[in-house]
Design a binder for these strands. Sequence first.
DNA 1: CTCCCGATAT
DNA 2: ATATCAGGAG
Length: 209
Amino acid sequence: MQKEELVVEVIRRLEKVYPNKLELNFKNPFELLIAVILAAQTTDAKVNHVTERLFKKYKTPEDYLRVPLEELQEDISSINYYRNKAKYIKGACKMIIEDYGGEVPKSIEELTRLPGVGRKTANMILYNAFGINEGIAVDTHTARVSKRLGLTEEEKPDKIEQELMQITPKEEWGKLSNLLILHGRYICTAKNPKHKECVLYDLCPSRES
DNA sequence: CTCCCGATAT
DNA sequence: ATATCAGGAG
Protein backbone atom coordinates (compact mmCIF):
# COMPACT_ATOMS: atom_id res chain seq x y z
CA MET A 1 0.00 0.00 0.00
CA GLN A 2 1.26 3.48 -0.84
CA LYS A 3 1.91 5.80 2.08
CA GLU A 4 -0.80 8.12 0.80
CA GLU A 5 -3.40 5.35 0.97
CA LEU A 6 -2.07 4.05 4.27
CA VAL A 7 -2.35 7.35 6.08
CA VAL A 8 -5.94 7.84 4.93
CA GLU A 9 -6.85 4.37 6.20
CA VAL A 10 -5.04 5.03 9.49
CA ILE A 11 -7.07 8.21 10.00
CA ARG A 12 -10.30 6.44 9.06
CA ARG A 13 -9.76 3.75 11.66
CA LEU A 14 -8.34 5.86 14.46
CA GLU A 15 -11.10 8.46 14.32
CA LYS A 16 -13.57 5.72 15.16
CA VAL A 17 -11.61 4.93 18.31
CA TYR A 18 -10.53 8.36 19.56
CA PRO A 19 -12.35 11.67 19.77
CA ASN A 20 -10.62 14.29 17.63
CA LYS A 21 -9.63 16.50 20.51
CA LEU A 22 -7.02 17.06 23.15
CA GLU A 23 -7.22 15.85 26.69
CA LEU A 24 -5.88 19.18 27.88
CA ASN A 25 -8.58 21.34 29.42
CA PHE A 26 -8.95 24.87 28.06
CA LYS A 27 -11.70 27.37 27.33
CA ASN A 28 -10.00 29.68 24.83
CA PRO A 29 -6.82 29.98 22.73
CA PHE A 30 -4.92 31.79 25.46
CA GLU A 31 -5.62 29.04 27.98
CA LEU A 32 -4.53 26.44 25.45
CA LEU A 33 -1.28 28.32 24.89
CA ILE A 34 -0.51 28.24 28.60
CA ALA A 35 -1.52 24.59 28.85
CA VAL A 36 0.66 23.41 25.97
CA ILE A 37 3.69 25.32 27.27
CA LEU A 38 3.21 23.51 30.57
CA ALA A 39 2.67 20.21 28.76
CA ALA A 40 6.22 19.78 27.44
CA GLN A 41 7.55 16.47 28.77
CA THR A 42 4.58 16.28 31.09
CA THR A 43 1.32 14.33 31.20
CA ASP A 44 -1.93 16.08 30.31
CA ALA A 45 -3.37 14.90 33.61
CA LYS A 46 -0.73 16.80 35.56
CA VAL A 47 -1.23 19.90 33.45
CA ASN A 48 -4.99 19.79 33.99
CA HIS A 49 -4.47 19.46 37.71
CA VAL A 50 -2.40 22.65 37.77
CA THR A 51 -4.45 24.69 35.30
CA GLU A 52 -7.68 24.08 37.18
CA ARG A 53 -6.39 26.46 39.83
CA LEU A 54 -4.15 28.51 37.56
CA PHE A 55 -6.90 29.60 35.16
CA LYS A 56 -9.04 30.87 38.01
CA LYS A 57 -6.22 33.13 39.16
CA TYR A 58 -4.85 34.22 35.77
CA LYS A 59 -7.32 35.19 33.05
CA THR A 60 -5.27 37.47 30.79
CA PRO A 61 -1.64 37.96 29.70
CA GLU A 62 -1.56 41.00 31.96
CA ASP A 63 -2.44 38.82 34.96
CA TYR A 64 0.68 36.71 34.45
CA LEU A 65 2.89 39.80 34.19
CA ARG A 66 1.51 41.39 37.35
CA VAL A 67 2.88 38.78 39.75
CA PRO A 68 6.56 38.24 40.58
CA LEU A 69 8.27 35.38 38.75
CA GLU A 70 8.66 33.52 42.04
CA GLU A 71 4.92 33.56 42.63
CA LEU A 72 4.14 32.13 39.20
CA GLN A 73 6.84 29.49 39.69
CA GLU A 74 5.19 28.53 42.94
CA ASP A 75 1.78 28.29 41.27
CA ILE A 76 3.07 25.76 38.72
CA SER A 77 5.71 24.09 40.88
CA SER A 78 4.22 20.62 40.57
CA ILE A 79 5.02 20.68 36.82
CA ASN A 80 8.37 19.58 35.36
CA TYR A 81 10.76 22.36 34.49
CA TYR A 82 8.59 24.84 36.36
CA ARG A 83 11.30 27.47 36.60
CA ASN A 84 11.83 27.62 32.84
CA LYS A 85 8.15 27.31 32.09
CA ALA A 86 7.30 30.23 34.37
CA LYS A 87 9.81 32.33 32.46
CA TYR A 88 8.42 31.14 29.13
CA ILE A 89 4.88 32.05 30.17
CA LYS A 90 5.88 35.53 31.26
CA GLY A 91 7.90 36.05 28.08
CA ALA A 92 5.08 34.80 25.91
CA CYS A 93 2.54 37.03 27.64
CA LYS A 94 4.79 40.07 27.25
CA MET A 95 5.21 39.37 23.55
CA ILE A 96 1.49 38.79 23.05
CA ILE A 97 0.73 42.17 24.58
CA GLU A 98 3.52 44.15 22.92
CA ASP A 99 3.63 42.51 19.48
CA TYR A 100 0.27 40.84 18.92
CA GLY A 101 -2.29 43.21 20.40
CA GLY A 102 -3.09 40.95 23.32
CA GLU A 103 -4.26 38.05 21.14
CA VAL A 104 -2.68 34.65 20.56
CA PRO A 105 -1.22 34.82 17.02
CA LYS A 106 -2.44 32.47 14.31
CA SER A 107 0.63 31.52 12.29
CA ILE A 108 3.53 29.15 12.81
CA GLU A 109 6.06 31.94 12.35
CA GLU A 110 4.50 34.15 15.01
CA LEU A 111 3.74 31.37 17.47
CA THR A 112 7.24 29.92 17.39
CA ARG A 113 8.64 33.34 18.28
CA LEU A 114 7.00 32.93 21.67
CA PRO A 115 9.34 31.47 24.30
CA GLY A 116 8.49 27.88 25.13
CA VAL A 117 6.70 27.38 21.81
CA GLY A 118 8.35 25.21 19.15
CA ARG A 119 6.78 23.73 16.03
CA LYS A 120 5.06 20.91 17.90
CA THR A 121 3.43 23.28 20.35
CA ALA A 122 2.54 25.82 17.66
CA ASN A 123 0.83 23.19 15.53
CA MET A 124 -1.20 21.99 18.50
CA ILE A 125 -2.42 25.53 19.14
CA LEU A 126 -3.19 26.34 15.52
CA TYR A 127 -5.39 23.34 14.97
CA ASN A 128 -6.98 22.86 18.36
CA ALA A 129 -7.65 26.52 19.10
CA PHE A 130 -8.27 27.87 15.60
CA GLY A 131 -8.92 24.89 13.35
CA ILE A 132 -5.96 25.84 11.16
CA ASN A 133 -4.03 23.07 9.37
CA GLU A 134 -0.63 24.67 8.89
CA GLY A 135 1.56 21.74 9.93
CA ILE A 136 1.66 18.45 11.79
CA ALA A 137 2.53 18.27 15.49
CA VAL A 138 5.41 15.82 15.81
CA ASP A 139 6.28 14.74 19.31
CA THR A 140 7.70 11.48 20.62
CA HIS A 141 4.38 9.72 20.05
CA THR A 142 3.81 10.95 16.52
CA ALA A 143 7.37 10.03 15.63
CA ARG A 144 7.22 6.54 17.10
CA VAL A 145 3.82 5.60 15.69
CA SER A 146 4.47 6.91 12.20
CA LYS A 147 7.82 5.13 12.03
CA ARG A 148 6.32 1.84 13.19
CA LEU A 149 3.57 2.15 10.59
CA GLY A 150 6.12 2.79 7.87
CA LEU A 151 4.72 6.25 7.12
CA THR A 152 8.24 7.63 7.40
CA GLU A 153 11.80 6.48 7.91
CA GLU A 154 13.02 9.89 8.99
CA GLU A 155 14.48 10.40 12.46
CA LYS A 156 14.38 14.15 13.07
CA PRO A 157 11.03 15.72 13.99
CA ASP A 158 11.27 18.37 11.27
CA LYS A 159 11.90 15.78 8.56
CA ILE A 160 9.13 13.55 9.89
CA GLU A 161 6.73 16.47 9.78
CA GLN A 162 7.69 17.27 6.20
CA GLU A 163 7.12 13.72 5.02
CA LEU A 164 3.82 13.36 6.86
CA MET A 165 2.67 16.62 5.30
CA GLN A 166 3.60 15.34 1.85
CA ILE A 167 1.60 12.12 2.14
CA THR A 168 -1.42 13.47 4.04
CA PRO A 169 -4.27 15.64 2.68
CA LYS A 170 -3.82 19.09 4.19
CA GLU A 171 -7.29 19.20 5.70
CA GLU A 172 -6.36 16.14 7.79
CA TRP A 173 -3.06 17.42 9.22
CA GLY A 174 -4.37 18.52 12.60
CA LYS A 175 -6.64 15.55 12.98
CA LEU A 176 -3.78 13.18 12.20
CA SER A 177 -1.62 14.84 14.85
CA ASN A 178 -4.24 14.40 17.55
CA LEU A 179 -5.00 10.81 16.60
CA LEU A 180 -1.39 9.64 16.44
CA ILE A 181 -0.64 11.20 19.80
CA LEU A 182 -3.58 9.46 21.47
CA HIS A 183 -2.78 6.15 19.81
CA GLY A 184 0.85 6.41 20.93
CA ARG A 185 -0.19 7.30 24.45
CA TYR A 186 -2.59 4.42 24.96
CA ILE A 187 -1.87 1.62 22.49
CA CYS A 188 1.32 2.08 20.47
CA THR A 189 3.37 2.73 23.60
CA ALA A 190 7.15 2.94 23.60
CA LYS A 191 7.47 -0.21 25.66
CA ASN A 192 5.15 -3.21 25.37
CA PRO A 193 2.80 -1.83 22.72
CA LYS A 194 -0.67 -3.34 22.96
CA HIS A 195 -0.74 -5.16 19.63
CA LYS A 196 -3.84 -7.14 20.52
CA GLU A 197 -5.88 -4.00 21.11
CA CYS A 198 -4.52 -2.14 18.08
CA VAL A 199 -7.00 -1.42 15.29
CA LEU A 200 -4.05 -0.91 12.92
CA TYR A 201 -2.54 -4.32 13.58
CA ASP A 202 -3.05 -5.78 10.11
CA LEU A 203 -1.62 -2.63 8.49
CA CYS A 204 1.49 -2.47 10.64
CA PRO A 205 4.89 -3.59 9.34
CA SER A 206 6.18 -3.62 12.94
CA ARG A 207 3.59 -6.00 14.35
CA GLU A 208 4.65 -9.24 15.98
CA SER A 209 4.08 -12.01 13.47
C1' DC B 1 25.09 18.78 22.76
C1' DT B 2 23.37 20.02 27.61
C1' DC B 3 20.30 21.79 30.78
C1' DC B 4 15.84 22.21 32.87
C1' DC B 5 12.58 19.02 36.57
C1' DG B 6 9.67 15.55 39.05
C1' DA B 7 6.29 11.64 38.76
C1' DT B 8 6.09 6.98 37.51
C1' DA B 9 7.79 2.47 36.07
C1' DT B 10 11.05 -1.17 36.63
C1' DA C 1 18.08 3.03 43.24
C1' DT C 2 17.83 4.45 38.52
C1' DA C 3 15.90 4.75 33.89
C1' DT C 4 12.48 6.88 31.27
C1' DC C 5 9.36 10.34 29.71
C1' DA C 6 3.46 14.53 26.25
C1' DG C 7 9.99 19.80 24.15
C1' DG C 8 12.35 23.81 23.90
C1' DA C 9 16.18 26.99 24.75
C1' DG C 10 20.99 28.27 24.71
